[in-house]
């Protein structure tokens, strides 16, 4: 083996763990990137509300495990729901979340997200604790992201503000609709109406 080749392969070997590590971006880096891209490409970008909604939808699909969230939110109803019902729900649930979040984009006023720490969340998850910091610094509040490692990298499965989990709140609200207002078809049709209203209010969709 030539000396040059040896140096090259030694360097490669040393780099390999680094490469493997870099491939799976850490949970907290995933959150920082999500926030940073959201601020630069959506919140501060001078584009139409419709375009903001589409960019957010792309980011949301990339960094959240929406199918896992949807199944959690449906709870035990997922067992009896037909495949078309599950597909319809997944689509309209995504719409409702996208339009719920985009409604607030116009209120953006220079806030930023700072990752504080991470903690284990069950045997195979991580929770990333962060703070949303305003300009005045006084009105900061805590937000926690529950994450799961998928083959493609870390994905967000829940957002918790002031101890209130988005996934649990949706789950308990939808359980009430399913039980009292026409099962899965009732839930889907009410969500479709709401998604349309939200989209219309913002002049998108």
């Amino acid at each position: 083996m030539k000396r040059r080749d040896f140096i090259a392969s030694a360097a490669l070997l040393c780099l390999m763990p680094e490469l493997a590590f870099a491939q799976a971006k850490s949970a907290s880096d995933t959150i920082s990137t999500f926030a940073q891209e959201g601020i630069v490409q959506i919140l501060e970008a001078k584009i139409s509300p419709a375009e903001k909604a589409e960019r957010f939808r792309a980011l949301f699909n990339r960094d959240f495990d929406i199918p896992a969230i949807a199944r959690f939110v449906l709870g035990r109803a997922v067992r009896t729901a037909t495949q078309p019902e599950q597909d319809q729900f997944l689509k309209v649930f995504e719409d409702v979340i996208v339009y719920t979040w985009t409604r607030r984009f116009s209120e953006y006023n220079g806030q930023s997200l700072k990752v504080a720490d991470t903690a284990p969340d069950g045997p195979d998850g991580t929770v990333v604790n962060a703070r949303i910091v305003g300009n005045s610094g006084d009105q900061s509040f805590g937000v926690a992201f529950r994450m799961r490692l998928r083959p493609e990298g870390w994905r967000i499965v829940d957002v918790i503000v002031d101890g209130v989990s988005m996934a649990i709140t949706y789950r308990q609200e939808y359980a009430s609709i399913i039980a009292q207002q026409g099962g899965m078809p009732g839930l889907i049709s009410q969500l479709q109406t709401r998604a349309k209203e939200l989209a219309k209010q913002q002049g998108v969709g």
Binding site: D162, E173, S176
Partner: peptide, 23 residues
Amino acid sequence: ELKKSSIDYYAALRSAYRQYRAR
């Protein structure tokens, strides 16, 4: 905010209140 994003505001409020209270 909760009212606008929910379709059963009562049920959403009940859930959110319980979680907030637990914290």
